[in-house]
């Protein structure tokens, strides 16, 4: 592993990626940075978390996107032709969560490449709930951002080492 350049603006890259995907692809401009609400009263079943790994011979990293199910349902309905069958709709939400994370990770990968850190992306993986927030260990650069969109909270974490 190589050391991370201190001027790598991971927060800015993450924020730009999220904004780009939500505005360009999903036409959702009404979101804003919000204070971290890790202690939100909503149970873990309320959340879906998408993840994509970033990898190259020089670095490892990951993108984690936590989204509330009501927010994903709103987004899913906006795409049109949402399924009425509850099981099929759940499958649509999982797919949407994965694709959102995939697109955001793609933009983050492009931002990292522009900063000289080229990496490949894994396919997205989605789980129900919120993984424990890992400590930022030595040699790890991490960006935690929290957003409000359509009245719901989104959390985006990017880490590289």
């Amino acid at each position: 592993m190589t050391s991370i350049k201190p001027d790598l603006e991971l927060d800015r890259i993450a924020a730009h990626a999220l904004r780009d995907v939500l505005v360009t692809q999903f036409k959702m401009p009404d979101f804003a940075a919000s204070p971290d609400q890790s202690s939100s009263a909503a149970g873990d079943g309320h959340w879906l978390t998408g993840s994509v790994n970033l990898e190259s011979p020089q670095m490892k990293g990951g993108v984690l996107l936590q989204m509330s199910e009501p927010w994903l349902s709103t987004l899913n309905a906006s795409l049109g032709n949402a399924s009425r069958d509850p099981a099929a709709r759940q499958s649509e939400l999982l797919d949407l969560a994965g694709e959102l994370c995939n697109m955001i990770a793609g933009r983050i990968g492009a931002g990292l490449a522009a900063a000289g850190r080229i990496c490949t992306l894994s396919t997205p993986h989605v789980i129900r709930g919120r993984p424990q927030r890992a400590d930022d260990g030595p040699g790890i650069k991490c960006a935690h951002t929290s957003w409000t969109c359509a009245g719901e909270t989104l959390k985006l974490k990017v880490w590289i080492k």
């Binding site: 692809q25 795409l79 049109g80 032709n81 499958s91 649509e92 797919d95 949407l96 994965g98 995939n102």
Partner: peptide, 12 residues
């Protein structure tokens, strides 16, 4: 595309 979301977007 393996994502139904993308296929739905394209259809729209």
């Amino acid at each position: 595309d393996d994502s139904k979301t993308v296929r739905r977007m394209l259809a729209r």
